[in-house]
Every structure is written in structure tokens, then in C-alpha cells.
């Protein structure tokens, strides 16, 4: 392993090399400190009732746990980031499998889990060909394993659910982990997580203030057209602002590129949200699980990022390359 690779994977001395990483960490940290005071002040002055207060406090506790779990691994090193994304993928897949009933097909589920583990190894090793090859291989192996029980009833269903599971939580979500192979991965991932989370919040706030026309009432009754457009504008501005620091010195720092990336994040983020709403409506469940108090399942929180991850990854990869200057096959050699 070269010293540069070791440093990227495990070294945290460069954690705050990029100003965006430092500023966002400080801002988010202080928000987490200030938020409970704000809630208590709102309750004390009678602006929110007791029920609202307890709901906000529950959500606050969840954020107090989730935020360090996202930020910590990113700051610590690429290896921790990849392991973190692997755990996130496995937990999201678990929720999906339990909600769709796919978990009863133990063999198919085992293939998806193994493929996610192998994908994470491909990320750690910086082995792009394996990372890419795992999609058709996994599809093929699921199709084969589903035959072995010699029970054709429900074959299409178990294969399709397994393939969708791997594509969404193995492949799509995995692009976040693969991004950690870039020297500049910290500010890029922070930009993605921050803009996707704020995109949700922008849509919520603008929708509350201006929203009239429903966006897709059958899929998600609370979303409005105004919220969607407001989020598109605000997220694009946010990405253009932060992005110029994240991608400084590359072609992507140009306003045209950043505007496109911002729109990509906002649109794919909102569609990811609607995708999970559609899945939940189809299944007839309210939340995917009860993992995070106040939020529902992990998937209810991370749904928006699933489609954003490959979108942003390939946008960056097309114009400047992801980890193009980094050593490859770190563990497998060659």
C-alpha cells in the first residue's frame, strides 16, 4: 500500500484541508448545540404546543445521533467512509427486504448481502472494474440461485425484488462509497449529504409557506409544486455557492457546471423521495421500519440520496474523473 493510499484511507490529519469541510462541520455542530435552546425558547414563549415540542425533541435526538454517524467516518478517513456506506447499504436493504417480504427468500437475500460486501471491498481496493461488473454478476447469480429450489411459482417476483434491492442499495448507494477514492472526497460527500438533506427541508418549508397545488397527491399527499420548485432553486444556489469551493481549480467550478449539478441533486433527490413513497404506498405501510425515533426507518431518511449518488458520481467522473490520480488495486495489487 502506498503512503498516499494509506493516508487517504486511514489518515485524518488532512480532514479539514478544504474550507468547506471545516465550515460545514462547525456550522452543523453549532446548530446541533443551538437547536434544543431554540426549541425550549419556542415552547417557553408559547409559540409551539407541548406535542410539537416533544416531537421536535425526539427528532433532535435522532439528528444528534445521525449527524456524527455521517460526519465522523467522512472526517476520519476513506476506509471508515466506505465501511459506513456498507453498513448503511446493508441496513437499508434489510428494511426493504422486510417490508417487501423478500427476506423470506433467504438464498436471494444472502446473494444481495454478499454482493454488497464484495462491492464495498471493490471500493476499498479502488477496483472500478469489479465495482461495475458486480451489477450484471449479481443479477445473474440471483437469477440462478432463485432456480435452485425448483419452485417456479413466484420466480419473477423473487428475482425482480432481489435485483431491485441490489441495484438501489448495492449499486446506487454504493457510488457514495466509491467517491471516497477521490483525494477530494470529504467536501464532495459533505456537499452531497448537506444539499440532499437541505433539499428536503427547503421543499418542506417553501411548500408550507407558498404551496397550493399538489405535486403527486396519490403518491405523497403533502408535497406541493411550489415546494418542489422552491427546493430546486434554493438547492441549486446552495450547490453553486459551496461547489465553487469544493471543486476549486477544476472545470467543475464553473457556474454552468455547478448549476447543472445543483439541479441534478435537487431533482433526483425529490424523485428518490417520491420513489420510496411509491414503494410504501404499494406495500401499504406507513414507515419502512422503526429504526430512528421520529423519522421511521433509515430508508425514510436516506431515500433522497439513493438516486443522487450515481447521478453526481458520473457527472464528476465524466468531466474530471473520480480518484483518477490515486493508486488502484490497493489490496489486490497489480
Amino acid at each position: 500500500m502506498s503512503p498516499a493510499a494509506r493516508d487517504r484511507l486511514f489518515g485524518f490529519s488532512h480532514a479539514f484541508d478544504n474550507p468547506v469541510t471545516l465550515v460545514v462541520t462547525l456550522v452543523v455542530g453549532s446548530l446541533l448545540l443551538l437547536a434544543p435552546m431554540l426549541v425550549w425558547w419556542l415552547a417557553w414563549t408559547g409559540r409551539i404546543d407541548r406535542k410539537m415540542k416533544s416531537e421536535l425533541i425526539t427528532r433532535y435526538w435522532s439528528w444528534l445521533v445521525i449527524t456524527p454517524l455521517i460526519l465522523g467516518p467522512i472526517l476520519l478517513g476513506a476506509a471508515w467512509t466506505i465501511v459506513g456506506i456498507a453498513i448503511l447499504s446493508l441496513l437499508c436493504y434489510r428494511e426493504y427486504a422486510r417490508a417487501t417480504g423478500l427476506f423470506r427468500e433467504k438464498a436471494v437475500s444472502a446473494v444481495v448481502v454478499l454482493a454488497i460486501v464484495l462491492r464495498s471491498f471493490a471500493e476499498l481496493d479502488h477496483w472500478y472494474r469489479l465495482f461495475v461488473a458486480l451489477v450484471p454478476f449479481t443479477v445473474g447469480i440471483i437469477a440462478i440461485v432463485a432456480i435452485l429450489r425448483d419452485k417456479p411459482e413466484g420466480y419473477i417476483q423473487r428475482v425482480s425484488l432481489g435485483v431491485l434491492g441490489y441495484v438501489l442499495f448495492g449499486s446506487c448507494l454504493g457510488h457514495l462509497g466509491y467517491l471516497a477514492n477521490d483525494q477530494n472526497y470529504r467536501p464532495i460527500l459533505i456537499l452531497i449529504f448537506l444539499s440532499v438533506e437541505l433539499n428536503d427541508i427547503f421543499a418542506f418549508i417553501v411548500g408550507k409557506l407558498l404551496g397550493k397545488r399538489k405535486l403527486a397527491p396519490n403518491t405523497s399527499p403533502k408535497k406541493t409544486v411550489a415546494g418542489a420548485v422552491g427546493a430546486l432553486v434554493l438547492t441549486t444556489l446552495l450547490v453553486m455557492g459551496l461547489g465553487s469551493f469544493v471543486f476549486r481549480g477544476t472545470v467543475l467550478a464553473g457556474p454552468g457546471y455547478l448549476a447543472f449539478m445543483g439541479m441534478l441533486i435537487s431533482i433526483l433527490g425529490q424523485f428518490g423521495d417520491l420513489m420510496l413513497s411509491s414503494i410504501k404506498r404499494d406495500l401499504g405501510v406507513k414507515d419502512m421500519a422503526a429504526t430512528i425515533p421520529g423519522h421511521g426507518g433509515l430508508l425514510d431518511r436516506f431515500d433522497s440520496i439513493i438516486l443522487v449518488a450515481p447521478g453526481v458520481f458520473h457527472f464528476i467522473n465524466y468531466f474530471v474523473g473520480v480518484g483518477a490520480d490515486q493508486s488502484v488495486h490497493i489490496f489486490t495489487g497489480g
Binding site: 434489510r94 427486504a97 417487501t100 417480504g101 433467504k106 405501510v285 406507513k286 422503526a290
Partner: peptide, 24 residues
Amino acid sequence: LKPAKDLGLPATERFRSLRRESGL
């Protein structure tokens, strides 16, 4: 599409639930 019968139960209740279904 049959969700797990114990979907949405917190872990401690899940263990005690008569509807519990094993995962992988």
C-alpha cells in the same frame, strides 16, 4: 408483497412478539 408481520416493532417488543419472523 407481504411485509414482515412484525414490521415497525421496536427490537425489544419484536423479540417477544408472536408474529416475529426471522431474517438472514
